[in-house]
Design a protein around this nucleic acid. Structure first.
Lengths: 203, 203
DNA sequence: GTCTATAGAAGGATAGAC
DNA sequence: GTCTATCCTTCTATAGAC
């Protein structure tokens, strides 16, 4: 009973995740999700009531996974440079496995900013950044990192790793014509981005 | 006659642009476009036949504007550093006026990569980059810029200016809690991004 | 819990009058 | 060229049998 439920619900959830990421909330069709899950449309409603609820469940799980993937960066006890390298290595590796997530999240959040507001309720970026500064106060002397520059710096790091995936199809077409392979590019990017940022920040 | 036509078609086109950018192709409703244009649904079909055609017209115009905005960067006869500063100043200024465009374009292109393929038919990035290198061959000696690094470098520059707008709602919520104003941030970004990139590239 | 059948609503598109 | 009325398809959602 519960086992069977879990199996079906799980299948639906996975199919929904797939379809929502590819088609977006508005473009997704309950029928396609049902087909992909190998079950009937009516079952979707049995388990999740409405498309809206199903989407919310999927979105929240994805957002949570992404946030959880970022947390270690702030916790790890590493020298600053190693932390930057660690971030790009881990984050880009994650995106290589989930290349569709950035575009999905950014789009759905832009269409409905309330989603991100709910997610961020427990997080105060300002406080997070302050403790980051304190942790590395000694090292900081060698870098152009000050609290008032942190918004620019943090968004630049996010941009360096996330943008290539959010703009994936554009880059793929451009690279194709220039004889560059996207996978090779992302693999090289782990080190390039780290070097780039460290060089830019060093005094 | 032609004047009236132009007026109405123009009104429809502008309304469609607005709605498509805010809601996306799938989320947009012909009714909403008609209302915003102050006319009747049937007129939309009279002028543009189908939603698909109306969307294509809007998309192509927007994409063309964006590409046209980038071209000068390659043409301008400026020293390399000035060119980089010129790019961020101009490009971010354009995005400040059109903050919704990056998210719109990236999303619609991801959903239908054929769109970008058509757009890029006349452009060979590889060739573009080669001439860029040749133009600045002397200056290059002072920078870590080589042809094989250009994909990484160019995408990093694009990322630095485009990402904040593509992720605008996320940043706005984060900044809000950290007491940072998004408009101030984008204004400062013109110079920050230029300094950041130049520093990262200098030998 | 899962299916078939269908209700009910919405949205794109067209016919036809003016 | 513009409007009203309406068709027709598609999609979400539910009823009801098993």
């Amino acid at each position: 009973m519960t086992v069977k439920e879990k199996q079906t619900e799980e299948k639906i959830f996975e199919a929904a995740t797939d379809v929502f990421i590819r088609k977006g909330k508005d473009g997704a069709r309950m029928k396609e999700i049902a087909d992909l899950a190998g079950i009937n449309k009516a079952l979707l409603h049995y388990y999740f009531r409405t498309k809206e609820r199903l989407f919310n469940a999927v979105f929240e799980q994805i957002a949570e996974v992404m946030l959880r993937k970022l947390a270690p960066v702030f916790d790890e006890k590493l020298p600053l440079e190693e932390k930057i390298r660690f971030f790009f290595r881990e984050h880009i590796a994650f995106l290589q496995q989930n290349p569709g997530l950035p575009g999905f999240i950014l789009n759905e959040v832009n269409r409905n900013p309330e989603r991100i507001r709910k997610l961020m309720d427990n997080i105060n970026p300002g406080a997070l950044w302050s403790t980051l500064i304190e942790k590395h106060s000694e090292e900081m002397k060698n870098y152009n990192i000050t609290e008032n520059r942190l918004p620019q710096i943090m968004t630049s790091m996010a941009a360096m790793s996330i943008f290539p995936f959010a703009a994936r199809s554009v880059l793929e077409v451009m690279f194709e014509k220039a004889g560059v392979d996207f996978n090779t590019y992302t693999e090289e990017r782990k080190e390039f981005a780290a070097d780039f940022v460290i060089k830019a920040l060093k005094k």
